[in-house]
Design a protein around this nucleic acid. Sequence first.
RNA 1: GCCGGAAUCGUCUAGUGGCAAUGACAGGAGACUGUAAAUCUCCCGCGGUAACGCUUCGUAGGUUCGAGUCCUACUUCCGGCA
Length: 413
Amino acid sequence: MKALEFDITHRLDGTLARAGVIKTPHGDIQTPAFIVGGTKATVKTLNVEQVKALGGQSILANTYHLMLRPGADIVEQAGGLGKFMNYDGPTFTDSGGFQVFSLGVAYKKGIDAVAHTEKGDATLAKKSADQLVKITAKGAHFRSHLDGQKLLMTPESSMELQHKIGADIHMAFDECPAPLADHDYLIEAVDRTHAWAERCLVRHNELNAQHEERGEPLQALFGVVQGARSEELRKKSASFLGERDFDGYGIGGVFEPGEISSVVRWIDETLPEDKPRHLLGMGAQPADLFLGIEYGIDTFDCVAPTRQARNGSLYTYDGRINIRNQQYMTDFTPIDAECDCYTCQNYTRAYVNHLLRSDEMLGFTLASIHNERFVVSTVDRIRQSIIDNTFFEYKKSFLERYYKDKLPAGVTL
RNA sequence: GCCGGAAUCGUCUAGUGGCAAUGACAGGAGACUGUAAAUCUCCCGCGGUAACGCUUCGUAGGUUCGAGUCCUACUUCCGGCA
């Protein structure tokens, strides 16, 4: 009995790109797919009907956040993540590994999963005095960002929590190191991530055996590849994890804009072809999506569409705009005339501008629907372009129009 | 009419002899990639990229090396008494 099936139905010659379908107990995901961010068992400001209506195929929640509130036991009592949030589609949980980074060395640095060394974030390489995480071989010692209580998350406990939360696809508990950590530390972190991955697999299999005994559906586990920007470490990590019996793979770490294609290529050339690959936390930029898919990514998740929406930054096919700007106050056209989302079909830039300036909650919702739809539909169209063998034409026309003459570093057309 | 109080950036406000002058809001813009995030950063008297220059704290005088801060008059507003 398998927790998950993955069928590759189309490949794009000369690339690592493929289209397929991930089959879970809660339905299929047509890949490549953009997985919608629902960290605390909710896609911020959207209900599940809206998520479905905008084409979201699957939602990713976070173990760390749900462990703190409401607690994994309560999610389990509710009947699992899907039941709890009234979502009957496929679900993922992230392990909490990223919080080792974001509450650790990155804490209070205003930093997320993208490193901008050119902006002077060298401080990220150092230990921060007030960080909330300490890492040992055993696991990660957290201090809750909510109330300061001490917590220990281990590979075993992350698996136990994820099984209680009960998403279809889990991530192994990994360490996401600082992008500028020195090479010796990266080696140590990768080795630790591998040791943790094996411990995750052991505990995961025990828990799945229990599910099987009870006649419950099995849950799937993805190993998470680390190794920062080191080709040697990324290949080592992909090779190590690829030899183990994971249902698929997550690609973690902190990227420089523009290095996605090379890092993802090293990994995906090494990983077994027949298992799905999830690029953790990437997808704010259309270029990320095209490059990731070209180099073999099947699924993405990213909080940027909803976060940026709340802050007024909206995608259009001609680039991003800040809808709060003065110039949109009297612009009675849709956010993007070519967008088929609910917001663009029914509301104007001027109205969304007004709502966000007025701190009206509907503004967050309308903006989030638009941004999420923009990214989801872009990935869907890329999928179709793989099937139609028109990927490169689509990529060129999309990126030229979106970025004009400001193509991100590392992107070729 | 008399007595008392008050007048500072679009708004509210800090300021008690050495400040172009505090904070908040409003306004202008930028950032945001496994959500610590409806958050953060910058600008916000005029000119200048800047150093810097100029003009400011109701109005007009005065005291002082120096006044948003002290004094006088006036104006307006708010109380109270008539």
